[in-house]
Design a protein around this nucleic acid. Structure first.
Lengths: 226, 226, 226, 226
DNA sequence: AATGAATGAGTTTTCATTCAT
DNA sequence: TATGAATGAAAACTCATTCAT
């Protein structure tokens, strides 16, 4: 999985940059950044090609030139997202110091939660792709690769925990990974109806902190050795 | 579908199924049923008002007559869904025999999972409403009411478990409810990307059973007294 | 020209009346009153049959029952308007004391102006009918009758003025009537663009008073004997 | 009357042309020409966007592309009309030879009358805009500018007439301008009902000539010095 | 007479995509 | 390649009128 540094731009979304003379490749990057914002907030069907082009400050034709159309742009947006996930996960694992399994796991769960907190657009993008029954996932390996660093790391942590007696035996790392992602991502995906359901305000920072702590604690508890 | 025979004098049309005659009052129900299917499979923006009307076998205008428009129809569909959730939960709680807390909780988690399994459309409807930032939730009480039977029952089970020593002290019932819904619903909402992520096929019945068992087990473990 | 007293209602427009047990004939009157307001403010094409029924507080079907449809309702509205004009003009002429021609004419012009001021809806109704090239005027005599009292009275005043030397000889009463109506009605029909044209605010009461005085004065001057 | 060559499109109204081939840039002009005809004959609400596009021989979307919608097209049509009025008035004033005030005024009144006679569509457009309470007048200056040449010229003529004793003192030029426009425009706006009112046929050329002469004569008389 | 529902043709507007310069 | 215009299909929504009770 290689990384195209020029696609890690995002000028129109993350910062204001004066239009420079050298527009080489900027159109593509701008489009991806704007598409990410648009697709995630409005869904695939609700997103307008014209608006993406307008917000990105490029001609509509650029979308057809670079991505072939709306579908291609969505696919590229999704792929760029997974690329980012991969890089983030890779960096996370690389930066983790050796530490006891419980600490490592607590930290990992917090990392996943915080990533979704920081990038709710990715939550929406993934949800959208699932609603479309995965029709844009041309390269399933891309997704698997994106999460592999974390899954591998998690499996290793669990194994160490099993050995040193901090974790229960025989719990599938993949299922645990699924648990972690479920609990973290679902929070950001369903805050509106869950707020109504439980009579709480999950949009507040305090509720988010509370929920985060609860998730970390319960997941750890669910893995303890008896 | 009852028919008034006295209005059947005169020659009926051959071959054609009478879409006319007594459509009185049927339109609303038909529309809600079709809308549920359409909105859940295509999302709000991806759903076509014309198609709903056509599939429901009613005139397009009926949607505007009964619901005021696409938004109104979505709102009504969502509300009807929550109404169903309420009835189901109410019936579930009413039918539960007295039993020890762990059994009760296992059963409850399985119930929630199975409901989502049986009604994935409701999953999609709720997801869609969250993507739209809850703009169709006119009546938040409806949602809260829909889940209240289960939340109240869960709180009571947890309390009993705390008392008899099967569950840990001081875990918030609302947070646990959130955990249950997260783990169960997320499975049905993200099977495509999670399949790709983990290299498994979560569309198969076997995987679903495995996942269900895992969720029940881990949630119970996460609540054990130390 | 007979007058149907039951059509001189106007409850929903001119006053609030509690719904009474005896609704006989009220629907027709309500509809005419509301139609007058709607047609005049939105034009024929811009007016909605549903809205008239809703505002009038009657069932839509009543429109078809009483008037045959939108066209019939417009026609009836127009005719009711002319009927009112007739009655007003008849009463005006009947109430005029003998007076010298110039006074009589000044008073008459003011009367015309004030009628349009009081009933701008009639201005719009007439304009609309002209835009439709008079297609609703089934009975042209109705219109002629409506103005006849005033035209006859005007001709008589002019004749007296000619005889006593206050007015010029040989000016057509019909043309003068046309002048009066033109100057008075046009003011109320074109206040928006004329305000913009001349940089004045013809919606203000002061401008209206000024314009009224000017019109009276100039018309009298235009008729003086040399 | 000078003509702005760039506005001299109008092929679809004046003749049949192959609608294909080079349509570049023609759409806008065609649409304005057709819209003028449609809006003036049917009013805003009565006009169909589809029909304008069809008659203009362009795609319906062109209306949204160039004007943003029906409202924008009406506004543009109105503005183009006032533009024409301005050019016409400017040319009229420029072409007027020095002459005595009464002659100048007679000529001016005839000019105004003849313009409305030649362009009854503009009459309808203006009436329509007034019915809509001026909601399309984005730029009031445009309207004021359109008439300014004539108003300024009129004021100057009146002033000269006051000085040389042909006109009365202290009559407001703006009010006189209003008189002229009222009398001339009203004739074309209300010929149907006025014909019925007075039992005359104001659609005939003879009646129009008679009315024109009457208006000119009476306006001049209304301004004479005593 | 009154009412809610139904009808079907139509009306504005939108959209992804392509063309011509 | 960049850009404004063009395209045609379709989308949401509206309307006057009629039906059934």
């Amino acid at each position: 999985m290689t990384k195209n540094p020029s696609s890690d731009h995002g000028s129109p979304v993350e910062g204001e940059e004066p239009p420079r003379a050298n527009n080489r490749g900027k159109a593509r990057g701008n489009l991806l950044a704007v598409a990410r914002a648009e697709f995630s907030s409005k869904g695939f069907a609700g997103t307008r090609v014209d608006e993406i082009a307008a917000v990105a400050g490029v001609n509509k034709q650029a979308i057809y030139h670079h991505f072939g159309g709306k579908d291609g742009l969505f696919r590229a947006t999704l792929e760029a997202g997974y690329e980012r996930v991969f890089l983030t996960n890779q960096a996370y694992v690389a930066s983790e110091k050796p530490q006891e399994p419980i600490k490592a796991l607590q930290h990992l769960i917090g990392h996943v939660f915080d990533r979704f907190h920081l990038h709710p657009e990715m939550v929406e993008l993934v949800l959208e792709e699932n609603r479309q029954k995965g029709r844009h996932i041309a390269n399933k390996n891309l997704i698997e690769d994106a999460h592999r660093p974390l899954v591998v790391y998690l499996a290793e942590v669990l194994k160490r925990g099993e050995r040193d007696g901090s974790f229960a035996q025989g719990v599938s790392a993949k299922q645990v990974f699924f648990d972690i992602v479920s609990l973290c991502m679902f929070y950001f995906a369903n805050r509106y109806t869950m707020s109504a359901s439980l009579g709480l305000d999950f949009l507040s920072a305090a509720s988010t902190r509370t929920r985060r702590a609860h998730i970390v604690k319960q997941l750890i508890r669910s893995l303890r050795a008896d």
